[in-house]
């Protein structure tokens, strides 16, 4: 009976966690899972509640393995829940950025060099600001050269860059935070005070080609830099 109670407790704890994530703590869920997969959490909660009902109905049934051998396996199932507090205060930062994109800066610069060189030298000055998604601008900078753009991102000053430049980065996820990949663009702050490492910034400015050490890449000439709170969806999709 104790084993069955333990099983019911474990399923109850996970069902509560999943329900809490889905119904109450969606900002936390947004830092774990792509929104198109949130149905999984709901499905998990439903299955767990069904299993919980079954476990409670079988509360007096004996189990195959005695509890003295199986209790570590049951406790292991609760280990992830012990990390919830740690996870809530943690964030992916510049260290994660560096770990997951060791040669990204060089690669991006090379790719963008090919793209920008094809741009006309006299790119028309399009005065209308565009509110494009981060990923659209980073993936196709040529289309936006000369335009005013507005991005929300985290700041990373990098010693390989000139003093007045920094990296503006976000993480893109396809399924969950474990597959988060950094995407970024360079920003010239043009006299604005340097942003703190990993601070969230709203960058407004014009996208232009820029050459450093023989490499040409897209860069935002910032017209304004504003500190912002972390958005409810820190990842981009």
């Amino acid at each position: 009976m104790i084993t069955r109670l333990l099983q019911a407790g474990i399923m109850g704890a996970w069902a509560t966690f999943f329900t809490w994530l889905f119904a109450v703590e969606q900002p936390t869920l947004a830092r774990l899972l792509h929104p198109r997969l949130w149905w999984l959490v709901l499905a998990g909660a439903v299955v767990l509640l069904i299993f919980l009902g079954v476990a409670l109905r079988r509360i007096k049934m004996p189990t195959a393995q005695p509890l003295r051998w199986s209790w570590p396996a049951y406790l292991i199932l609760l280990v992830p829940l012990c990390f919830v507090g740690q996870m809530q205060s943690a964030r992916f930062d510049s260290q994660t950025f560096r770990d997951r994109s060791p040669s990204a800066i060089e690669t991006m610069a090379t790719v963008q060099e090919q793209e920008i060189q094809q741009a006309t030298p006299e790119t028309p000055d399009i005065a209308t600001p565009v509110e494009e998604s981060f990923i659209q601008i980073v993936q196709d900078p040529q289309r936006h050269v000369g335009r005013r753009v507005e991005l929300l991102c985290q700041a990373l000053p990098d010693t390989r860059l000139p003093d007045d430049q920094f990296i503006c980065y976000r993480f893109r996820i396809n399924c969950c935070a474990a597959d988060a990949q950094p995407v970024f663009i360079f920003v010239n702050r043009q006299g604005s005070p340097p942003p703190a490492k990993d601070a969230w910034m709203r960058v407004k400015g014009r996208l232009s080609p820029h050459t450093v050490n023989g490499l040409t890449f897209a860069l935002i000439q910032a017209e304004s830099l504003q500190s912002e709170a972390e958005p409810s969806f820190p990842f981009i999709f």
């Binding site: 299955v47 996870m87 964030r91 474990a178």
Partner: peptide, 30 residues
């Protein structure tokens, strides 16, 4: 994870750990 030196590493690990669990556990239940 409670110590200043390891907090960032354990924090990132917690995010990855729970993200993978939240994604994989429903699949395992199904």
């Amino acid at each position: 994870g409670q110590t200043p030196v390891y907090r960032p590493l354990v924090g990132a690990m917690s995010i990855n750990f729970l993200a993978m669990m939240v994604e994989a556990l429903p699949f395992m239940l199904i």
